[in-house]
């Protein structure tokens, strides 16, 4: 690995970490194509690198978001059970479903969620979140950008749980989907504030990635140089991403997320993902 290549991989990791920390996603949708098409890494090594960088994003951001109470651990753990079950089911059903139809369905689902999120940003009371002390899962955190404490209750938990099952299923089938599905569902369906949704997703994606990471590690698919360089980049990127995440207004983060999922949906329909 030449010094230039090292710097480019670190830079790719930094962008991945920034996006991941800001939006609650793993960033594989960006990193894998860069590693495969940009640096010529074999697909399984690129996926293995991506899986480890997801853990790096999750662990680096969790220490900040959990300490500040932005991550909702109870919600995260509840949804994590469904995600893990979904991932196992995805692995089992992967060979029985046509990939094109799956991609189209996923793209349609993402566009639908983008529409829901967009409608929410247009609503007059977008900043207002519903808080019910009797709700099964509630949360509260200080929003530094809005300069106020935000209290909320999780609505439609069963729907979010089913969506997590779907997110895990798609992760197992397509190798992506975790944060891209869970963040919009938590925000647009369950009424979780965007910052809490991305922070909770960041907590969850690392846990989901662990099992895959150990498998890639045991099979010898991890390229230590690319993985280590990308991880170092991610660790620096997450510092920037968490800082941005706390300073930006929720509406801005929602808009960035909508643009991202539209790009992913279009790429899916075009067969590039």
């Amino acid at each position: 690995m030449s010094p230039l290549l090292f710097l480019l991989v670190v830079l790719s990791g930094t962008i991945t970490g920034t996006l991941g920390a800001l939006l609650g996603i793993g960033g594989g949708i960006f990193l894998i194509p860069v590693l495969v098409m940009g640096f010529g890494l074999p697909m399984h090594e690129a996926v293995a690198t991506s899986v480890v960088t997801i853990i790096a994003t999750s662990s680096a951001t969790a220490s900040v978001y959990v300490d500040k109470g932005i991550s909702n651990i109870r919600l995260g753990m509840t949804l994590e059970v469904m995600t893990t079950v979904g991932a196992v089911l995805g692995g089992i059903t992967a060979n029985h479903l046509p990939g094109d139809i799956l991609r189209s369905l996923f793209a349609f689902f993402l566009l639908f969620m983008a529409g829901l999120m967009w409608r929410r940003t247009r609503a007059r009371n977008v900043g207002a979140v519903q808080y019910d002390p009797a709700a099964r899962i509630s949360g509260a955190f200080y929003d530094a950008a809005e300069k106020q404490e935000v209290r909320y209750s999780v609505r439609r938990l069963p729907t979010s749980m089913m969506a997590s099952l779907l997110a895990g299923n798609l992760s197992g089938l397509l190798g992506i989907g975790g944060g891209l599905v869970k963040v919009p569902v938590m925000h647009a369906v369950s009424g979780v504030p965007m910052k809490a949704a991305t922070a909770t997703s960041n907590f969850m994606i690392g846990v989901t990635a662990v099992a895959s990471a150990f498998i890639y590690f045991s099979y010898g698919h991890l390229n230590p140089l690319y993985t280590a360089a990308a991880v170092l980049g991610v660790l620096s990127g997450t510092r920037f991403g968490t800082m941005l995440g706390m300073r930006l207004h929720s509406r801005t983060i929602v808009m960035v997320f909508i643009v991202l999922i539209i790009i992913v949906a279009v790429r899916m329909v075009a067969g590039e993902v």
């Binding site: 480890v52 853990i55 662990s59 753990m77």
Partner: peptide
């Protein structure tokens, strides 16, 4: 160097499990 690189990656992979245990 590979001992340190693999050890660093391995420690990182353990962090979510440790986080679950603490949780």
């Amino acid at each position: 160097p590979y001992v340190f690189l693999y050890a660093g990656i391995f420690v990182l992979m353990l962090t979510p499990i440790l986080r679950l245990l603490i949780t």
